[in-house]
Amino acid sequence: MKTSTPIYLVLLVFAFCSSCKEQSNTDQAKETPAAETKTVAAHGGPNSITRAIIQNRKGDIWMATWEGVFRYDARQPVGQGTTFTNMTTGVSDARFFSALEDSKGDLWFGTIGSGVYRYDGVNFTNFTTKDGLPNNEVTWIYEDKAGHIWFGVNGGASRYDARLPNGQGTSFRNYLIEGDMMVEDTTGKTIPDLTRPPMEVNAIMEDSSGKLWFATRGRTYVYDGKTFLVFMHADKPFTNVRTVIEDSKGQIWFGGNDGLWRYSNNTLTQISKDFCGYIYEDSKGNIWTSSETGKGWALSRYDAMALAGLKPTPTVINPWKDGNPGLAFGILEANDGSIWFGTTTGVYRYDGANFTDFMGNGERK
């Protein structure tokens, strides 16, 4: 573990125009009733890349995958009736990448190349660059405390005012990466797809002080509502961060090419040098990561008690006995305490002792 390093924030020039017109209304967004999609019940879960997993207030588990959006009825005992349903059959054949349930109970799903879809329980509504997004590759979705929905896209971020009824007023405000800076765009500029590194916004998070953090494949930015700052360590920009979260103690965690880092009391400490893709805090205060280890990809769990020490070491949990199928992605603690995570070949559930995968024609261990 590296020694702790003080942090500095570098102020960037940011032209913030609160009186400028926002970019587009949503009355052109396409709606597809779920009842007309002819959804197909899947006996097993997805068999391809599963990037994000969430559980909504009804208890269903939703997965953003490259085969579509899957819903898992976690309230129904396994083996009794239909468990998995591909909800976007007939809606979109896009590769889905990100997911969020907002404070109103609507579900949002980002895609690579087809913008973002909102599902209100009946209809899917599609938003693209035609409606105000700066780019159609939506890699992250986040709701701030004010109820704005933020989309991390290739080229920057977009803030959607979900409080405005569709077609009434304007809804999108876009913030683009220009060189080393992140600035608001009021011209309606769009960014071509497939321009990912270093323009991709990987994660967005609002901390307990109200500041927003934007992790990109380039620099990491902190936004106070008026000004974007570059987050620095060792007099260098903190770069290529894939995930940023704030834990229940107010500590901020970063994961990326340079490993796993913890930011506390204005000090940044490297916890692990292994590449870290996702970070998740469970209800007990344990920190989970999907990361690369010396033996390939695995889940790592840092127990809450161990995190109080100077050199916390994780419990590495590897579900793959017969080889490693590739990367591990989004992590979720379900209501029953089980840990779900996505991989390049589908989704797994870990109950503390055993792994269950849901690929192929049914559930198996």
Results as ranks from 00 to 15, higher is better:
residue 2 K to D: 10
residue 3 T to G: 02
residue 4 S to V: 14
residue 6 P to I: 11
residue 6 P to A: 12
residue 7 I to E: 04
residue 10 V to P: 00
residue 13 V to L: 12
residue 17 C to E: 14
residue 19 S to P: 00
residue 21 K to D: 08
residue 23 Q to I: 15
residue 24 S to I: 02
residue 25 N to Q: 13
residue 28 Q to A: 10
residue 31 E to G: 05
residue 35 A to Q: 10
residue 35 A to I: 15
residue 37 T to C: 07
residue 38 K to D: 02
residue 40 V to E: 13
residue 41 A to T: 06
residue 52 A to C: 11
residue 56 N to L: 07
residue 59 G to A: 09
residue 62 W to I: 08
residue 67 E to M: 06
residue 69 V to I: 14
residue 69 V to K: 00
residue 70 F to S: 02
residue 77 P to W: 08
residue 77 P to D: 04
residue 83 T to E: 01
residue 94 A to Y: 06
residue 98 S to E: 02
residue 102 D to T: 11
residue 104 K to F: 08
residue 105 G to P: 06
residue 107 L to T: 12
residue 112 I to P: 00
residue 113 G to T: 11
residue 113 G to E: 04
residue 114 S to L: 12
residue 114 S to E: 15
residue 119 Y to I: 08
residue 120 D to E: 04
residue 122 V to N: 06
residue 125 T to M: 14
residue 129 T to I: 15
residue 130 K to H: 13
residue 135 N to D: 11
residue 136 N to Y: 05
residue 154 N to C: 10
residue 157 A to M: 11
residue 157 A to P: 00
residue 159 R to F: 04
residue 165 P to E: 09
residue 165 P to I: 05
residue 175 Y to P: 01
residue 177 I to D: 05
residue 179 G to Y: 09
residue 184 E to Y: 05
residue 193 D to E: 13
residue 207 D to L: 01
residue 212 L to N: 00
residue 212 L to E: 00
residue 214 F to H: 02
residue 219 R to L: 07
residue 221 Y to L: 03
residue 224 D to W: 01
residue 225 G to K: 01
residue 227 T to C: 02
residue 228 F to V: 02
residue 228 F to Y: 12
residue 234 A to L: 11
residue 238 F to N: 01
residue 240 N to W: 03
residue 241 V to Q: 12
residue 244 V to T: 13
residue 249 K to V: 04
residue 251 Q to G: 03
residue 251 Q to H: 05
residue 251 Q to F: 04
residue 265 N to S: 12
residue 270 Q to C: 13
residue 270 Q to W: 00
residue 272 S to W: 02
residue 274 D to M: 05
residue 278 Y to W: 11
residue 287 I to G: 12
residue 290 S to E: 10
residue 303 D to F: 04
residue 306 A to C: 01
residue 309 G to Y: 05
residue 318 N to V: 10
residue 320 W to K: 01
residue 320 W to F: 15
residue 335 N to S: 15
residue 339 I to T: 12
residue 343 T to Q: 08
residue 343 T to Y: 03
residue 345 T to D: 08
residue 351 D to I: 09
residue 354 N to L: 14
residue 355 F to H: 02
residue 358 F to V: 12
residue 360 G to P: 00
